[in-house]
Design a protein around this nucleic acid. Sequence first.
DNA 1: CTGAAAGCGCTTACAG
DNA 2: CTGAAAGCGCTTACAG
Lengths: 357, 357
Amino acid sequence: MSRKNKNEVTGVKEIARRAKVSIGTVDRVLHNREGVSEKTKARINKIIQELNYKPNILARRLASRKTLQFDILIPHISDESDYWQAPLNGIIQAEAELKQFGINIGKFFFDQNDKDSFVKQAELILKRKADGVLLAPFFLDESTQFTNACSRMQIPFVFINSDIPDQPSLCYIGPDLFHSGYLGGQLIQYCISGKAKILVVNVSKEIKNQQHNRLLRKEEGFRAYFKDNGKKNPIVKIDIRKTDQWSIEKNMKDIFQQHPDIRSVFVTNSRVGSVASFLEKNNLKNLRVTGYDFIEENVSFLKKGWIDFLICHKPIEQGYRGIMSLYQHLVLKTEVEKTYYMPVDIVLKENCAFYRN
Amino acid sequence: MSRKNKNEVTGVKEIARRAKVSIGTVDRVLHNREGVSEKTKARINKIIQELNYKPNILARRLASRKTLQFDILIPHISDESDYWQAPLNGIIQAEAELKQFGINIGKFFFDQNDKDSFVKQAELILKRKADGVLLAPFFLDESTQFTNACSRMQIPFVFINSDIPDQPSLCYIGPDLFHSGYLGGQLIQYCISGKAKILVVNVSKEIKNQQHNRLLRKEEGFRAYFKDNGKKNPIVKIDIRKTDQWSIEKNMKDIFQQHPDIRSVFVTNSRVGSVASFLEKNNLKNLRVTGYDFIEENVSFLKKGWIDFLICHKPIEQGYRGIMSLYQHLVLKTEVEKTYYMPVDIVLKENCAFYRN
DNA sequence: CTGAAAGCGCTTACAG
DNA sequence: CTGAAAGCGCTTACAG
């Protein structure tokens, strides 16, 4: 049934009436615009308090012909990994929902292996003077420079995927990598004996960059699990400096020749698919394999049984929620959680059909 | 930076101009109201098509002083289980977001163990003539009668938590119970030997009702996992007809006396906490325990190590999404997925801090 | 069957 | 420093 609203007498009109001013003046103090005497300002603010006035967002957006520009800066989707398609999809979903509220989203992409491309795109964003920025801070120094510039220009920014903790970001939305690795340790421990040898695989082109640090953080957590729980499993480790299939397989072959008694593999990023491919080709069964990210290749190996566990951090939601945080802050003017850790999801063959990335 | 909208010439005004009618008439055909000649109706519809006109939801809600009434019918939160607090929280969250769009939510609760209370509350809802209904169809016949009445009154309804498949619901939002149980099988299988004995525990006051069927469905899935994968673990089963702590412990004691070699326990609902409590009191260690639902008691046993895995179906999101589906259908007039299976989440000690129920 | 006007609760120029 | 008017894109009576 449709009902009429009870006519609550509130709104700018009522405030104006009580304060004996025009609604234009009320609007001015509502938006902290200048040109109002302290006296009337105080009077109006008092009434706003008394009435517990909440502006009507609908009317506000409708009347205001302003459009807000949010710009995003994330890696482009490469053949190397289509991981970033997921956050982008979340961003696109948010874009669709916010379009009618006058939000536009500008999309800027950089090459994960090219700092300059990051810097270049960042500069473009600064020139456009976005109202808000969402970025994946891949390169520590360059990202910091960029967000410093944002701060100077009063542009709020949110980090997704990885954090730079000491920056005045609006918020961080992404995983707690240490605990994500820790969980990996616990999962594997359930499946193997107390003596089984474990291989940790880090695949990263450059070392000592922000991305490689991410992997190390997971490894730390992983190892911490065993240490904290008094587990003595021998752990061997391999750093693979190239991300292509062939290099990974080559490296895996070498390490398995040295350690044929490996019983479990923990891959600290989405390249677990390439590792699984190696196992399949060499028919290395009865290994427990854990890795990251719900991407097509990985899911297919999960279904075939060459991967046991995929740990995921809801990348689609990261993108969606990142944009929504800007919206909450800039339009709704509501509080935003400074650090929003994503859940650490576990995907197995049997629940992958229901997983929402 | 704030920008002006590019002045896209669309909207009722433009349609009216092109069709050489008034905007009132355009509005009439937009809402399929009568009183428009077929001829002009066709003309206007054609122009709407051409312009690919999308109404401005903001303006629509602002201008329309109608309020929509959504009513929910779920179990009240009892001492027996605070599970239903979670869906309710999701509903309340949706309510807060939709309030400014003129949506009101009426909350009706029934007693899980009392069909009459369900019927009574359902009647109240029908009398109020809600615009949309969300319900947990606990009692099959009574639920069907209620939703039949809804259908007759053209009130769309959504099911959460459990489904009645052949009903013309707007949608179902909840788990696929069979696969949820199946996943339980897979989890346990990772942790135990091929010969270890497994105990399945069903706790349910009444048997042969919709709720008990839910448990059976999970058990089916659970057993199917072992069958499909050629696992020969002996499985024993116990049906406990009382839900209080004492009865559960008593029953567990009996079964463990008969089968001291049980190595793993699968509890098909949230009463896993009581089972864990029994294990703790009797210091029965080295068992792998799996159960359902992220409720306080269970999480505390998870942290203490008496429960290994909790399987969860995001009850908060079920409530939230249920209301949002009604909103999408009734206000946004967008398509709604007829069956939205929730993810089958796995919560361990190590990721429970990050879980979003 | 159709149109013209008022209004939803705001913001935006413009005038003084 | 402040007010009065117009307008955002719709819906709602009311009049004919």
